[in-house]
Design a protein around this nucleic acid. Structure first.
Length: 887
DNA sequence: AAATTCACG
DNA sequence: ACGTACGTGAATTTA
């Protein structure tokens, strides 16, 4: 045996973490017998990762034997007052042990001792026998066991992230050695284990004292030399507690275990029993893994896929014709494909799979031809990502006309995963792993060194794209979504790829100037606020701010949050009159937001080409809208003057060019008028009335538009918005600051005046109940399982969603069509103008000076004619030498 | 990682 | 008598 590696797992604490990691899925993880299985499942997932990363020769999972231990005998309150372990977890514990047994892994518990002590004892055995040891736990106590040959991995939030405590890491975190950590705990006590240390001593002081004295014993030996202080008094008073705490905190490294290190050697897996166990638990994923590995026949633990590794010599042999269908997958590590490093690629044609780490092979003429020839159709996963990434290699892809990611998003977007493996699993294909399994995440994210492991992953991805194409296309057809897929989403992906690659020019100099101006303003406001508060504090901390406003200054706390006082605008606005500090805080907040999110944030993402290249997420939202990240260009400020200044930094590519903006007027209400068929509202749009004034006339029973006051219009506008969101009297009253009764009157009047809108809302809810989903004009679906929920709030939310989704979603369909037509038009006319940004109902263009007149004409034309509704679509334009002026 | 806050349509 | 507008992303603090 080459390496002696020991893996020690704190069974109870890891099971506990596993249980809460999948707590939200508690009810969906059940065996046919009704047993909860979430903790068992998550435990196995975590174990797989550990076995792979550590690759141990010896493994032991230690469990607690019961509540009574030598520590509880020493101190009755030990671990007292702890919340009971939930029954749903307790019932799973024996099964975790059973599974471990089937996997050939030893489990052990010892009466009167905690799992910690068993682990401590085996750490000692490991050190004496020359093992490299890894301890895994959810409990920081065990970090005292770290040594040059022993690493303690502590689960961080969930189970997938581990924090590795080596002696060095311990020093960084606590400033002491692992052994000294015990002394630290002696002074500070342990809240979760329910024993005190010395009053008034927390982690910081404890660490400092132990760094100075080395141990509790030494500290008390020299206590007389300490100068008089409150702390000294407390140290003397709580001396007994400190020594008791030290005993409780010390893990026993010599507990009377009855097994030895040879007994924890990994044993062969009992595949037959394991298979039965997985069946009993209904673990389809693990069953599939067993099948794929040909379990029991002694083969490797992953499915072996046949592939050919491409190199400079054999790459020339890869040929394809128009008759061939090709699967292509280009892998990068990281989400941002504008920058992410390439990992490799795989290519399938004529039933042969080619793989390589060397993406430059794609630039070879024959391969490049395959990717660029429109007539050779390619199946991919994430068309847009593939297209942008290929472009970085100088490859202009054409003929990418099937995208597994887009197809699965249209079929069902409840799970908005973008991981090929996860999506394949949803459709019953477990032959491919998730990226998380292969690459890891966070700090430990990396590409496997092992060629076979990586190439198998890339090859299995290609296979999944191919084998799931038929069933996915059938589903699309069933859903009447083939047109949505072929004529909207696929072309939209291509348009978006070009928009992202174009990017938008952002002038850093403008932002830096703003940064300086805002810095001065912020400083002034800060000083004023601290002055009035009578102290300095962290203005960005709602907790500290709440303390100042509601405790120190005694302002009335209007609203509470889960964790304390709310300090949101809503609250502060109401307090403005009570103290001048409030307005200054509001001003500070507003400018600080702009400074950090927009000025700093944007400066950080300007690329060397002087532009920002956002990514539009096309497969994320529940309604079919796009979203925008890195940076988000869909929430650049517009509502306040300071915020708006940001837009001055967004400029055209050419110095004398224009930013041209065109936005739909009231699309969502027009969509509502169309889908509801409401005659009164349609009439208003057809006549070209101001819709909010029209609504005001209707609900306030006025005869002429002249009688509409600004306040009435504001109220009517809020009602119109409310209708689109699935209104309630409460929501409207809160929004407008009127009584609930008055709000209800508005709504009643509204439905009286627009009766078919009321019908639409009722019908939308009823349809969602019958079909289980809501649908847009282009057959985009949103499933609403909560529409049948027992809980009123949950069900009511689903009902409002059923009303809103077809409206928001149809508007999203419409602008996607407009974008496709717009790009086509730009190409046909050979214009240099670039479409650069989409903000839900608005398109932004980067226009050379001499194309402005053409653009002014064609953009609104194309947008207004995207679809034919029963009411006209109107789009309004603006332009200027930067985004600010384009209004 | 969750919670809070606030930017947009 | 319930508790309540729809859809997003990013920065920051706190635990």
């Amino acid at each position: 045996m080459a390496d002696k590696k020991l893996l020690l797992i704190d069974g109870n604490s890891v099971a506990f973490r596993a249980f809460y990691a999948l707590y939200r899925q508690l009810e969906s993880f059940k065996s046919p017998d009704g047993l909860h299985t979430n903790a068992i499942y998550a435990f196995k997932n975590m174990l797989d990762v550990l076995l792979k990363d550590v690759d141990p020769t010896h493994v032991l999972v230690a469990f607690d034997a019961g509540k009574v231990t030598f520590r509880t005998k020493m101190y009755g309150e030990y671990k007292g007052g702890r919340a009971k372990t939930p029954e749903e977890l307790l019932e799973q514990m024996p099964y975790i042990q059973e599974m471990l047994h089937d996997l050939g892994i030893k489990t052990y518990e010892l009466k009167n001792y905690e799992a910690d002590d068993i682990i401590g004892t085996f750490v000692d055995k490991g050190e004496k026998n020359g093992f490299t040891t890894t301890v895994v736990t959810g409990d920081r106590d065990l970090t005292q066991l770290a040594s040059p040959s022993t690493t303690v991995e502590v689960t961080k939030s969930g189970v997938s992230q581990l924090e590795a405590y080596t002696p060095e890491h311990m020093k960084e975190v606590n400033g002491v050695t692992p052994t000294e950590f015990i002394d630290m705990k002696a002074l500070m006590g342990d809240n979760s284990d329910n024993y005190p240390g010395v009053e008034g001593i927390g982690p910081k002081t404890a660490s400092n004292l132990i760094q100075e004295y080395g141990s509790v014993e030494n500290l008390y030996d020299h206590i007389d030399e300490m100068k008089k202080s409150k702390r000294k008094e407390r140290l003397i008073r709580d001396k007994d507690k400190a020594f008791l705490a030290k005993k409780l905190a010390t893990i026993d490294r010599d507990s009377p275990v009855t097994i030895d290190i040879d007994d924890v050697k990994r044993q062969p897996v009992d595949y037959e029993k394991l298979r039965q166990f997985y069946e009993k638990m209904n673990f389809r994923k693990f069953l599939a893994e067993l099948n794929a590995s040909g379990a029991g026949q002694g083969s490797a633990d992953v499915e072996k896929v046949e592939y050919t590794v491409l190199n400079d010599d054999n790459v020339k042999d890869v040929k394809a014709t128009e008759k061939d269908t090709v699967e292509f997958y280009l892998e990068m590590l990281g989400a941002n494909y504008h920058l992410a490093p390439f990992v490799g690629f795989s290519l399938k044609l004529n039933d042969k799979i080619y793989v390589s780490r060397d993406v430059e092979l794609l630039e070879e003429d024959n391969i490049k031809h395959i990717l660029e020839d429109e007539k050779i159709k390619k199946n991919v996963f994430d068309l847009k990502r593939t297209m942008v990434a290929a472009h970085r290699l100088g490859i202009h892809t054409h003929g990418l006309d099937y995208d597994m990611l887009l197809a699965s998003y249209l079929i069902n977007n409840e799970n908005n995963s973008n991981d090929l493996g996860e999506i394949a699993h949803l459709y019953g294909d477990y032959s491919v792993k998730t990226d998380l399994e292969v690459y890891g995440k966070g700090k430990s994210e990396h590409v496997p060194d092992n060629d076979d492991e990586l190439f198998n992953h890339l090859a299995s991805k290609i296979n999944a794209i191919e084998s799931l194409k038929k069933p996915l296309l059938e589903k699309l057809k069933d859903h009447e979504q083939d047109a949505l897929f072929d004529t909207i989403e696929i072309p939209t992906a291509r348009v978006l790829a070009r928009m992202e690659m174009n990017g938008m020019k952002v002038e850093a100099s403008t932002l830096i100037q703003l940064q300086n101006e805002f810095a001065v303003k912020l400083k002034e406001l800060e000083d004023k606020i601290y002055d009035q508060a009578g102290e300095k504090f962290n203005l960005n901390s709602p907790k500290q701010l709440g303390h100042i406003l509601f405790e120190k200054l005694g302002l009335p706390p209007i609203k509470k949050t889960k964790t304390g006082y709310s300090t949101s605008v809503e609250v502060l606005d109401q307090l403005k009159t009570q103290s001048p500090i409030v307005s200054e805080i509001l001003d500070y907040r507003q400018i600080a937001k702009i400074q950090s999110t927009y000025v700093k944030g944007l400066l950080d993402v300007i690329q060397p080409d002087g532009r920002v290249h956002t990514r539009y997420l096309q497969t994320l939202t529940a309604t079919g809208r796009l979203s925008s990240v890195d940076p988000n260009l869909q929430n650049i400020p517009t509502r306040t003057e300071e915020g708006k200044q940001i837009r001055k930094a967004f400029v055209p590519s050419e110095p004398d060019g224009y930013i041209f903006s065109c936005d739909y007027s009231q699309v969502e209400l027009r969509v509502l008028a169309h889908v509801s068929g409401d005659q009164n509202m349609q009439e208003a749009f057809k006549t070209g009335y101001d819709i909010h004034s029209h609504t005001a006339m209707k609900i306030f029973h006025l005869d002429s538009p002249d009688q509409v006051t600004p306040l009435m219009r504001r109220h009517a506008k809020a009602v119109n918005f409310g209708i689109v969101y699935g209104i309630s009297d409460y929501g409207l009253s809160k929004n407008l600051g009127i009584s609930r009764k008055r709000a209800q009157e508005f709504i009643d009047n509204y439905f009286e005046q627009y009766p078919q809108i009321k019908d639409y809302m009722d019908k939308a809810v009823q349809e969602a109940r019958d079909k289980g989903y809501a649908e847009t004009i282009m057959h985009r679906r949103r499933y609403l399982p909560d529409i049948h929920a027992k809980k009123y709030t949950v069900r009511a939310f689903a009902e409002r969603t059923a009303i809103n989704s077809p409206i928001q979603g149809s508007a999203a369909d419409i602008i996607k069509i407009a974008m496709i037509n717009m790009q086509k038009k730009l190409d046909e006319l050979h214009l240099k103008t670039k479409m650069v940004v989409q903000v839900h109902d608005e398109l932004i263009f980067d226009v050379p000076k001499d194309e402005l007149e053409t653009i002014k004409k064609i953009v609104p034309e194309v947008m207004q004619s995207a679809v034919k509704l029963d009411v006209p679509l109107i789009a309004d334009s603006g332009w200027g030498h930067n985004w600010y002026d384009a209004k």
